[in-house]
Amino acid sequence: MSAHPAQLWLPALDRFGQAHPLRRLLAQADRLDDDPRDRLARLADGFDGAGSPLPAAALLREHLAGDAGDATWLNADPAWVQPDMTGVRLLACGSMPLDMREAQAYTLALQPAFAEAGLQLEITAPSHWQLRLPPETRVPAFAAPELALGEDLYLHLPQGADGRPWRVLLNEVQVLLHQHSLNAARQARGLPPVNSVWLWGAGRLPASLRCRFAGVVGSDTLLLALAARAGVPGQSRTPTTLAAVQVGWLVDLQDVAVDELMSDWWPPVQALAQRQALQFTFAGGERWSWRPRHRWRFWRGAPR
Rank of each mutant, 00 (worst) to 15 (best):
G160D: 01
A161R: 13
A161F: 00
D162G: 13
D162N: 05
D162W: 07
R164M: 09
R164K: 11
P165Q: 10
V168C: 03
V168T: 14
E172W: 01
V173H: 07
Q174H: 04
Q174I: 11
V175W: 06
L176P: 00
L176Q: 13
L177E: 06
H178Q: 12
N183K: 11
A184I: 00
A184K: 13
A185R: 15
A185Q: 15
Q187T: 13
A188P: 05
R189W: 04
R189Y: 02
G190T: 01
L191K: 10
P193I: 05
P193Q: 12
S196G: 14
V197W: 02
L199A: 01
A202I: 08
A202N: 08
G203C: 08
P206Y: 05
A207F: 03
A207L: 13
R210L: 06
R210Y: 05
C211D: 06
G215F: 04
G215M: 04
V216F: 03
V217R: 10
G218S: 04
G218K: 08
S219V: 02
S219Q: 15
S219P: 03
S219F: 00
D220S: 02
T221P: 12
L222P: 07
L223K: 10
A228E: 08
G231V: 08
G231T: 03
G231H: 03
S236N: 07
T238H: 07
P239S: 11
T240G: 10
T241M: 06
T241H: 15
L242I: 07
A243T: 00
A244W: 03
V245I: 09
Q246S: 13
G248L: 08
G248F: 04
W249F: 00
D252H: 10
L253P: 06
Q254A: 15
V256L: 10
A257R: 14
V258K: 11
V258N: 11
V258T: 15
D259P: 09
L261T: 09
M262Y: 14
M262C: 05
S263W: 04
D264H: 13
W265P: 10
W266E: 08
P268N: 06
Q270L: 10
A271W: 02
A273P: 08
Q274P: 01
